[in-house]
C-alpha cells in the first residue's frame, strides 16, 4: 500500500494573513505531493513498502538518501498541517502548559527558544519541540531530517514542527524569516500539540 498525500482539515486561505493561500496550495499540492511520490518510488520493490513511516525513520541511517529525504519530507509536512488551524494560537493549557513552564520557564520563553532555533538553522530545515523521555526540548534539523531519525542530534518524539525551508514563507515574507516565525504562533493548534504530547510522554 503506497503512501498518500493527506487532505488538509482546512482551506488553503484559512490561515491568512499569517500564511497566504498561494503558499499553502503550492506547499501542499506540489512540495508535499512530490515527497510522497518520490518516497513511493524510492520504496518500490525494496520490501520496505509496507513499513510504517516511524519505523523507517528509526533505521534511516541504513536506508537510501531518497528515503531519508522524501520519507522525512512526508512525515514532517503531515505533522506540520495538523499542528496548525484557522483561528489558532492562544496559549497551551493543562499538562502541556505545566511541562512548558517547567522546562522553559514560561510560554514566552518557549516561543523565544523555538523561534531562535528556526532563525539560526542555516539553509533548509525544521525547528522542533520534542518529547525526549520525560523532558521537553527544542532542537532543529537540516533539510527533511527529524528527531525520529536515528541520525538526529536530539532524538525523541516531535510534537510541534516549524518548516523553515524558504518555500514555507518566501512568497509572503521573502528574506524575513523572523516575521514568518513571529506570525506562525497565531495559527498553532494547541489541542493537537497537546494530544501529541500526551501520547509521547511516559
Amino acid at each position: 500500500m503506497a503512501f498518500e498525500l493527506p487532505k488538509l482539515q482546512y482551506a488553503y486561505d484559512s490561515l491568512e494573513p499569517h500564511i497566504d493561500s498561494k503558499t499553502m496550495e503550492i506547499h501542499h499540492t506540489k512540495h508535499h505531493a512530490a515527497y510522497v511520490n518520490n518516497l513511493n518510488n524510492a520504496l518500490a520493490g525494496t520490501g520496505n513498502e509496507n513499513k510504517k513511516l516511524e519505523d523507517l525513520m528509526a533505521s534511516i541511517s541504513s536506508l537510501p538518501a531518497a528515503v531519508r529525504n522524501n520519507g522525512g519530507g512526508h512525515y514532517n509536512h503531515s505533522l506540520f498541517w495538523e499542528i496548525m488551524k484557522p483561528n489558532g494560537g492562544g496559549n497551551p493549557t493543562g499538562d502541556l502548559a505545566d511541562a512548558i513552564n517547567r522546562y522553559f520557564g514560561s510560554y514566552d520563553k518557549l516561543k523565544e527558544t523555538l523561534s531562535n532555533a528556526g532563525l539560526t538553522r542555516f539553509g533548509s530545515g525544521w525547528a522542533w519541540l520534542v518529547v525526549k523521555g520525560s523532558e521537553l526540548v527544542v532542537t532543529s534539523t537540516p533539510n527533511q531530517d527529524n528527531p525520529l531519525m536515528d541520525v538526529a542530534d536530539v532524538k525523541g518524539t516531535p510534537i510541534l514542527g516549524i518548516d523553515v525551508w524558504e518555500h514555507a514563507y518566501y512568497l509572503k515574507y521573502q528574506n524575513r524569516r523572523n516575521e514568518y516565525l513571529s506570525a506562525i504562533w497565531n495559527v498553532l493548534n494547541w489541542e493537537e500539540i497537546s494530544r501529541r504530547f500526551k501520547l509521547a510522554i511516559h
Binding site: I26, S124, E166, H167, Y170, L171
Partner: peptide, 9 residues
C-alpha cells in the same frame, strides 16, 4: 529556493 521561488516556485 530564494534564487528562484518568486519566479518559479
Amino acid at each position: 529556493e530564494h534564487a528562484y521561488y518568486l519566479d518559479y516556485q
